[in-house]
Amino acid sequence: MTNRIDYYTMKKYTYTEKKDTRSGFGAGLLEAGKKNPNVVALCADLIGSLKMGDFKEEFPDRFFQVGIAEANMIGIATGLAIGGKIPFTGTFANFSTARVLDQVRQSVAYSNKNVKICASHAGLTLGEDGATHQTMEDISMMKNLPNMVVINPCDYNQTKAATLAIMDYVGPVYLRFGRPKVPVFTPENQEFVIGKALMINEGADVSIFATGHMVWKAIEAGELLAEQGIDAEIIDIHTIKPLDNEAILKSVAKTKSVVTAEEHLRNGGLGDSIAQLLALNNPTPIEMVAVDDKFGESGTPDELMTKYGLDTIDIVNAALKVVKRK
């Protein structure tokens, strides 16, 4: 650890508003529809929740309401893709993955179809609906499917950019986003490169790899760590698969300690992927901020993030612990 007590190392991030990432998806989908006439959208009776209403209004012929029948939705999307369309399916994350895992596996992933599985209300932060709707296993299921790309953007602007980027990518994609309003801190109209990690803050003492809603919490943690003289490198891993191995290994070679942060179970999540990469290439002390083999429960998003150990302070404590293990 370098001695930086006297000065503050963290790049300043500010935001003027909070917005939900699902609205970034809705805005991106509308723009995608305007850019490419082959873009079509399907929804399983959750147009409002997925923010697909604007697309439906603008392109009624290219919008397919399938009712509460997610397996059928995945199949119809597959057929639309075979016919040359670029289908985006929309429902909650649990119903986009666990409910239809075999349909996604055989019809989409194994058949390598150009289907974009877009999933809202991922993780704990949908709040009061409780564990039936709070999937924290979805990344695990999707990343385990060969051919599947897995993306978990961090704010409104990045989700919108990701939605446009997956339109141009040919192949199956799982795009994961959420319900709570979170700070919008990445630039408007940014270029989103699938599989390319985003440097948030360069640092020397510890690498914090965060995804989704946890990226802003990692920034808050970085500020607190800087006050304690720890210079954290913070990297947004918006693409969990394919993982940006090069960026991760480069960062770890410098910091020699790692914290991962995700709104997901530890089993099968981002931390799991990074631990595997490091074990094979550069064994390094690692702490994982994730949920430990538990289902969620009802509560406000903030209460749940605290109770399940996914708060800013949890990232700070993980960093303090891991730098001592170097």
């Binding site: 199949g75 597959t78 057929g79 075979i82 019809s107 058949s111």
Partner: peptide
């Protein structure tokens, strides 16, 4: 055009292809 074997999936896929043809 698509893998089949795990049963029950082909009708949905066929519907999707029919809808794509209709759009075209």
């Amino acid at each position: 055009r698509v893998a089949s074997g795990s049963l029950g999936q082909g009708l949905s896929v066929a519907i999707g292809h029919a809808q794509a043809k209709k759009l075209d």
